[in-house]
């Protein structure tokens, strides 16, 4: 089953709508709560990143009884140094974003922690695609 979501880049209050919707759908489909939690956290962090760094993007969620594959694609500025971005506490978020409760530098590390596999393709000035696999186990 495939679900598609557009993440608007200009409205911080709507960040999390896709994660909330997928969470509801997975509950209805009867997935275990810890799997749903991991998918929700990984996707929510990704949505927040898309809104604060990349002016939105597009999410594809492929859901099967074996695994959940999440693809988050944006046409934002790209990530200059992925290794740094994966470090706990490293953040390039603005003070404005911090006032909104994010930008602690835990986004990408937390996405990694909650997924079984993660890959990041990024090109400066072109965009970033993050792929995450969460096994249903």
């Amino acid at each position: 089953m495939t679900f598609q979501y557009d993440v608007p880049g200009d409205d911080f209050t709507r960040a999390g709508e896709a994660s909330g919707d997928l969470k509801k759908k997975m509950k209805k489909l009867g997935f275990p709560s810890d799997v749903i939690r991991r998918v929700s956290i990984a996707l929510y962090e990704g949505e927040i990143n898309m809104v604060i760094h990349a002016n939105g993007g597009h999410i594809t969620a492929e859901v099967s009884s074996k695994e959940i594959d999440l693809t988050l694609a944006d046409t934002g500025p790209g990530i200059p140094d992925i290794e740094k971005a994966m470090q706990d506490g490293f953040s390039t978020a603005s003070d404005q974003v911090r006032n909104l409760g994010f930008g602690a530098g835990m986004g990408l590390p937390n996405m990694k922690r909650n997924s079984d596999e993660i890959s990041i393709e990024t090109e400066l000035g072109v965009g970033t695609t993050v792929r995450m696999k969460i096994l249903n186990k």
Binding site: T13, G16, R37, Y44, L100, G101, F102, M106, N110
Partner: peptide, 25 residues
């Protein structure tokens, strides 16, 4: 999102929608 596990209550000074969304997730 990074450190909390099974706590049922969130105390926060953040009053935007993301406080509710975080609780939801």
């Amino acid at each position: 999102l990074a450190f909390v596990k099974d706590q049922a209550v969130l105390l926060t000074g953040l009053i935007n929608t993301q406080a509710i969304r975080t609780a939801e997730m």
